[in-house]
Design a protein around this nucleic acid. Structure first.
Lengths: 187, 187, 187, 187
DNA sequence: AATGAATGAGGCTTCATTCAT
DNA sequence: AATGAATGAAGCCTCATTCAT
């Protein structure tokens, strides 16, 4: 019964990730879900609510996990980086579409929600930056003389760009990819 | 006369980079250029032609330059990487909007053009990969045991993600940023 | 059980009087009554049936009363006018919303019912006109030389316009208002 | 060329007066004007703008005239009342549809405009009230002991109700009707 | 070269209504 | 008796595009 609800989210994920928010019409979603366009409004007050619902299940939980990791008092910086890469890439592997949508389509949210999700992005970056800073403090030779923000953004870019090329059926598992990324920046 | 032509491209660059292709209407462009909507059709046969024109001035030339660099017989791999990073980041600094549009909006081109620009992306990646491979060959300890494709995509991601955060007025110049990126992956 | 029925009518009265028939959706009514939209269809076959039900309790009874008054053989014209004003204004005080709806929204009834309620309006006017005519006959100096129809419509307008301004909490009671109206036209 | 513009206003006047704002769809207007629905948006940014345009030509000018009359230092109160009745009824004769729309549909304007037009209504009433007060002051026996507001509203109702019954082809001219109304309240 | 007029297609949304439970 | 699911029709509006001038 709430079957349609999940189907809408699932299909919308696929379509919006592939075509973008505006190029995905409710008609397209309805057709694939095999319900009528107006039925969508039983489950979502408007188109944006779909985008929102789809982000909500993935993005806020992610930041909670990252926050715990970054603030963990018992782990070394490089261990945190390793775990971050694994966590983030696993997220990408499992929720690639949603991450893709988040990264590229959240600008289409209305003001309030846009602000909220932009802040999450900033907070996410801030937490990664905190990890990098810890590394620089613990290992004076690592990232020596480098700007913490640049390092942070570079590493995030390295990961996030994965939404463009990561392929579940590729020859490496997502954990192997994460390991390699770790080695690229931390050999 | 060609004044309006360039203005349209310039304004379209800004708007499409900020809002995306579909969320940028011809009316919005016309308003900012201060011409009438129908006048746009004097310069471009349709909306897509604007997107196309705007990409044409930047993307194909870029690949020509990269191609020459990658195929240069006289440079070492790590020198090529250094130069690539500088070149690519300078491109981003100068043509950030267009690069952004290219990376995120070229999916909205019609089939033929989409294919063409997708191929450019693949070719671009291939050329960077060639540089990485040269490094791995020349320096058996660098990127040792790492998958060439993963390294390539990681480095490209590191750079391209810059469209999301690079700020002309930031405290570092684009060349300094490129240098730091080089150090991140090549210290 | 019939609880919901009356609530629907009551809420619909308020909303339709305030917003008009078309601007009042069944959802709005359902929300205020605190039942589901589809439950409304247990009590009324369609939206129009609500409008109809709400008019039925007020309008036809009113004409019965007016008819008896106008046709009373024992009362003088000016006494009838006095009583009409009192009766009509009391109706307005008690059933302002419904009278308002009747006067402004009965055009949205379907053909048959529209015709019926238009005829009631005409009949109502006819009965008031009959009273005016009796006055003109009994008091040759009152409304002398005036067109009976114009006088009738003027007096009805004077009263009906009350739906726009009458306020239960105003400083005058509805009977005092009716008296003053009588004095305006009959000093 | 701006032919369509006036046609839209004219047709919209008729339809909205007859059916009400919400029951008049842009499609109905477009069909009668014989243009396409989307063409309407060349002339009006949205449906409400039509309603607004149609009111603008009639209502604000009317209040200007009434204001001059009410504030005229040289006229007696009863002369002002006579002139007011003539002016208002002529307005009704000439712009019946628009007056009707104003009186019954301005509640559908969006907040800002609704407020503006509600204020005009109040101001209009205030000016008529000023005339009545002048009469009460100059002629201690006229409207003696009557509440100025009630008299004002009654007279306005008498007039405004005309939108429901006045017929250009009736046997009396609008000036004759105005005269009779004057006699009803001022014999 | 430039534009105002016009439009068809399609987008999002509302709404009254039906139906199975 | 009550309702959640579902829908077709219609509403307003946007948009890219065409065309005559």
């Amino acid at each position: 019964m709430t079957d349609s609800y999940s189907k809408i989210i699932e299909i919308a994920s696929q379509l919006m990730s592939k075509n973008g928010y505006h190029a995905t019409s409710l008609q397209m979603i309805a057709d694939k879900v095999e319900i009528s366009k107006s039925s969508i409004f039983h489950y979502f007050i408007n188109k944006e609510a779909i985008l929102l619902a789809l982000l909500k299940t993935t993005i806020p939980p992610a930041i909670t996990v990252l926050s715990e990791l970054a603030n963990n008092k018992d782990l070394s910086g490089h261990e945190k980086l390793k775990r971050f890469l694994q966590f983030h890439m696993r997220l990408l592997a499992k929720k690639g579409n949603i991450l893709h949508i988040y990264l590229s389509e959240s600008k289409h949210l209305e003001k309030r929600n846009k602000k909220k999700y932009m802040e999450i992005k900033r907070e996410y970056t801030r937490l990664v930056k905190q990890i990098i800073a810890q590394i620089q403090q613990e290992n004076p030779n690592k990232f020596k003389g480098l700007n913490t923000t640049i390092v942070t953004n570079s590493i995030l870019g390295m990961c996030n760009w994965g939404v463009e090329w990561y392929n579940k059926k590729g020859e490496l598992t997502i954990d192997e990819i994460a390991d390699q990324m770790y080695l690229i920046v931390y050999n």
